[in-house]
Computed example of a mutant assay.
Amino acid sequence: MRPLTKALLGLVAVIGIVQALAVMALTWPLAGVRAWLLVYWQPAHWVLFGLAAFVGITFLIMLLVAVLRPATTTKLTLASDQGDLSVSKRAVENTVAKAVAAEHPVKGVAVAATMHKSHVKQATIDAYSLDPTDLKAQAAGIEKTAQTKLEHLLGVPVKKIKVNLHPGAKAPGNAARVL
């Protein structure tokens, strides 16, 4: 989880806890707390109203994200006139990894795909180059190979392909070249 997301979730949690404690103090018969809150009722009233509005808007946004954001899946569904074919996420990742390893001088190819029901949203390719001279051109070639493999062979659109190409000297010892 990103640090900003953690901070925002923590802020919402703290505000929600403070709001819940303030509402409990107003409704539960705690004489000392209730007397203090009633003395300062006007500012406390607006603070509680503001906290409630903030928490309500936050949960409304969370609900909209949960409802409107498309769900990812582990099965890619390919429709044809003879019926539907389901291809697993692992098969898509292995197909791209083998195509990249066969056409480019790389080793330790790892592919992570994020898929929706009928298309690949993102494919992230990590590889170690055996020829560290022009990594940018190699990364562009790897991206084109992955795009071609996914779009022409599987017939599915790809929204984004991200290539992380590292010099071969930094490759882990167990990263073997796939032939």
Rank of each mutant, 00 (worst) to 15 (best):
V92S: 06
V100I: 12
L150Q: 05
E151C: 05
K149L: 04
A44V: 11
L78H: 04
A20M: 09
A13R: 03
K117M: 02
E143Y: 01
K170W: 11
S118G: 13
L153T: 13
W36N: 06
L9F: 10
I142T: 04
R177G: 00
K121W: 10
L78E: 03
V39F: 08
Q122P: 00
A25K: 06
T58D: 06
V55N: 03
V47P: 03
I125F: 13
A35V: 03
V106Q: 04
I61P: 02
L135M: 13
L30H: 12
S88W: 03
G173A: 15
A169F: 11
L30Q: 12
R90S: 10
V33R: 06
Q82L: 11
A52S: 15
Q138P: 05
G155N: 07
P132C: 02
S118E: 12
E93S: 05
K107W: 01
S88M: 05
E143T: 08
L64I: 13
L21R: 02
M62P: 00
A35H: 11
E103A: 14
L26D: 06
T124Q: 10
A169N: 13
P105G: 05
T58V: 09
T74Y: 00
A113D: 04
M24K: 04
H166T: 13
K75D: 08
Y128H: 14
V65T: 10
R177A: 14
A71K: 15
